[in-house]
Computed example of a mutant assay.
Amino acid sequence: MPAYVVFIREQSIDQTELQLYSELAPTGLAGHSAKPLAMYGAYQVLEGPDIEGLAILEFPTFEEAQAWYFSPAYQTALKHRLRGGRYRGVIVDSLQGS
Rank of each mutant, 00 (worst) to 15 (best):
A38S: 11
L95N: 07
Q15V: 09
V5I: 15
H32S: 09
G48D: 06
S22W: 00
L29K: 09
L95R: 13
M39P: 00
Y21P: 01
G85E: 01
Y69G: 06
G89F: 12
L20V: 12
L57Q: 00
A38T: 09
Y43L: 05
Q44C: 07
R88L: 10
Y69K: 00
A30R: 06
F70D: 11
D93K: 14
Y74T: 10
E63H: 11
L37Q: 00
E63N: 11
Q96R: 13
Y4H: 13
S33I: 08
S71Y: 07
Y40T: 05
Y43D: 05
T27I: 12
P36C: 03
E58K: 06
Y87C: 04
H32A: 01
F59K: 00
M39K: 15
F70R: 14
T27D: 08
V90T: 14
M1C: 10
L46F: 06
S22G: 00
I13C: 00
F62E: 13
G41M: 02
E63K: 10
S33H: 14
H32K: 04
A42C: 05
A42L: 06
V45N: 01
Y74F: 14
Y74P: 05
S12G: 04
A77W: 03
L24T: 05
G97C: 10
H32W: 14
A42R: 13
G28Q: 08
F62K: 12
S12A: 08
I51D: 06
V5G: 10
K35R: 15
R9T: 14
L20I: 12
Y87S: 07
E23H: 05
F70A: 07
A73Q: 14
L57P: 05
G48A: 01
G31R: 08
E58T: 11
Y4S: 03
D14L: 01
T16I: 03
P60E: 03
Q66K: 15
A25T: 10
P72K: 12
A55D: 10
L54Q: 09
G84T: 01
L54D: 09
G97N: 09
L24H: 11
Y69M: 02
A65T: 07
T27Q: 12
P2S: 11
L24A: 05
P60Y: 07
S22R: 04
W68R: 03
T76M: 08
P60R: 04
G84A: 03
F7K: 04
S33P: 13
R88I: 06
S98E: 15
E52G: 04
G28E: 07
Y74V: 05
Y43W: 13
R83P: 02
A77Y: 06
P72N: 09
G28A: 04
R86V: 11
Y40R: 09
I13G: 00
T27E: 14
P36A: 03
